[in-house]
Write a protein that binds this DNA or RNA. Structure first.
Length: 476
RNA sequence: CGGGGCGUAGCGCAGCCCGGUUAGCGCGCCUGCUUUGGGAGCAGGAGGCCGGGAGUUCAAAUCUCCCCGCCCCGACCA
């Protein structure tokens, strides 16, 4: 294996796959389009999962598990839904050596199987709201795949809720997109735009789709999570009615929402540099890597004494750390290795440091390298990790703002999108215009912003006054 | 599905155009010694159905045909 990764400036796509593989996050599987998530990459997903699972439970949700195999006919019950997913279904036609009477699809998403069950479970307004989440794998037979960002099989969570009123279901959809925003901003140090999808871009079967959109290191947009208000579409398709307090039968209202292992890709692309990954401390599997340095048994004893003091303190403070005690590779190799893996703080302890009862501390995000006495280090340690978390977020926000341009005309929009970045403008156009812009510029409306910089303005295409401010960008 | 690239050791590649003894190189791996504060050095060693099949030939990694697979770029999508 060669050293280092392809520089981002030379080939961004190559840089990305280099980092994924060299940081040992994932590897290609024997099956086209699938990937193996390696322990270090899976650890990132576990951090995301743990954060979300806690938030889901805090907001009143419970976990359940529905089967992966779904009768093919279920998919056909919701017209838009089947149209949206039919081309990318994997279908099981044989089982136990015999052809099946009805083919089974491997879930591309679980609305249909879940709503077939909700029909059994929901009878009365007393059964509502029903707030269920599941952690699962899904399969979508995509034409083109990319490690983490788009794989044939991926891991995700999908929340599926049923409510007595549309307002309540809408509120739920908003609540959950906000949980995703918190995940990105607080945990992944990733600023996102929160907004609504246009008709063109919304989920197959949804009334409204809400999204969070992030800017990657190459200035392209990445949809990091979605939350849908489904109205009564699935309730009608699966005939899920409830009896109201007034003894009236009514279809229930629904929401669904999900994020996937794609978020790991977002972290890589948003923060990484030509040395490899840069992990925000809150998601980093190891927040601190300790590299002991010694030449002889005497030095080793001295150094390791200090190391175990540190380890004990890290445990007490709940800091995730790892000591790289490999004796077969040089310190220099370890420095590069852990930089590739994006560990936020590195601590080097050699005989010289041990003599002074101190250590060298190196920040992955800034490269800052300073000597600190052990006590000073321990006293500032948590604070430093927080500072790294914050400054990574700040730098991403600054990057996004520096590469966002308000545009007033279609020509300006083209220019901005061409050179890379977000174009922000008002919009009152229709679906055909959107398609035309996509054909001509490759850019799409990423979202209609919840947080506008101005109340209203003229539409970039039609000139008509509009209150809908949007972001145009090329996306993943 | 369209365009491009590639299948030779665990990984990355050379050799192929112009067929010819034992198929090379770098990294990694194993053993030993010396090393260890930014990807260590030397010595020795292990490891190949040259993607698969069929053909041409005295002889195929190399030429011909067919097949399979993967990666990258587009259309589709989280």
């Amino acid at each position: 294996m060669s050293k280092g990764v392809t520089p981002r400036s030379k080939d961004y796509a190559k840089w990305y796959t280099d980092v994924v593989q060299k940081a040992e996050l994932a590897d290609y599987s024997p099956v086209k389009g699938c990937m193996v998530i390696r322990p270090y990459g899976y650890a990132l997903w576990e951090q995301i999962r743990d954060f979300l699972d806690r938030r889901f439970k805090e907001t009143g949700h419970v976990n359940a598990y529905f089967p992966m195999l779904i009768p093919e006919s279920f998919l056909r019950k919701e017209a838009e839904h089947v149209e949206g997913f039919a081309p990318e279904l994997a279908v099981v036609t044989h089982g136990g050596g015999k052809e099946l009477e009805e083919p089974l699809v491997i879930r591309p998403t679980s609305e249909t199987i879940i709503w077939s069950m909700y029909k059994k479970w929901i009878n009365s307004y007393r059964d509502l709201p029903l707030l269920i989440n599941q952690w699962a794998n899904v399969v979508r037979w995509e034409m083109r795949t990319r490690l983490f960002l788009r794989t044939t099989e991926f891991l995700w969570q999908e929340g599926h809720t049923a409510h007595a009123t549309g307002e309540e279901a809408e509120e739920e959809a908003h609540r959950m997109i906000d949980v995703y925003r918190q995940l990105c901003e607080e945990m992944l140090a990733l600023p996102v735009h929160v907004g609504r999808k246009t008709e063109n871009e919304k989920f197959a079967g949804a009334v409204n789709t809400y999204t969070i959109e992030a800017m990657m290191g190459d200035m392209r947009a990445l949809q990091a999570g979605t939350s849908h208000y489904l109205g009564q579409n699935f309730a009608k398709a699966f005939d899920v009615k409830f009896q109201t307090e007034d003894n009236v039968m009514e279809y229930v209202y629904a929401s669904s929402w999900g994020v996937s292992t794609r978020l790991v890709g977002a972290v890589i692309m948003a923060h990484g540099d030509d040395q490899g990954l840069i992990l925000p401390p809150r998601i980093a599997p190891y927040q601190i890597i300790i590299v002991p340095i010694y030449k002889n048994p005497k030095d080793k004893e001295k150094v390791m004494g200090l190391v175990s003091t540190l380890e004990k303190a890290f445990k007490e403070h709940g800091i995730r750390y790892h000591t790289d005690g490999r004796e077969t590779v040089s310190p220099g190799f370890k420095f590069n290795d852990w930089e590739m893996k994006g560990v936020p703080l590195r601590v080097e302890i050699g005989p010289k440091d041990a003599d002074k009862n101190g250590l060298m501390r190196i920040r992955r995000d800034t490269g800052e390298k300073i000597f600190l006495a052990i006590d000073d280090f321990m006293n500032s340690c948590k604070e430093t990790l927080e500072d790294i978390q914050q400054s990574i977020y700040n730098s991403r926000l600054a990057f996004r703002e520096a590469n966002t341009t308000d545009v007033a005309t279609y020509n300006e929009l083209k220019e901005v999108v061409e050179k890379g970045g977000f174009a922000r403008t008002f919009w009152a156009g229709n679906s055909e215009m959107e398609n035309r812009i996509q054909e001509e510029t490759k850019a799409t409306i990423r979202c209609i912003l919840f947080e506008k910089t101005k109340e209203s303005g003229p539409c970039v295409m039609t000139g008509k006054p509009s209150t809908e401010q949007v972001i145009f960008a090329k996306s993943y």
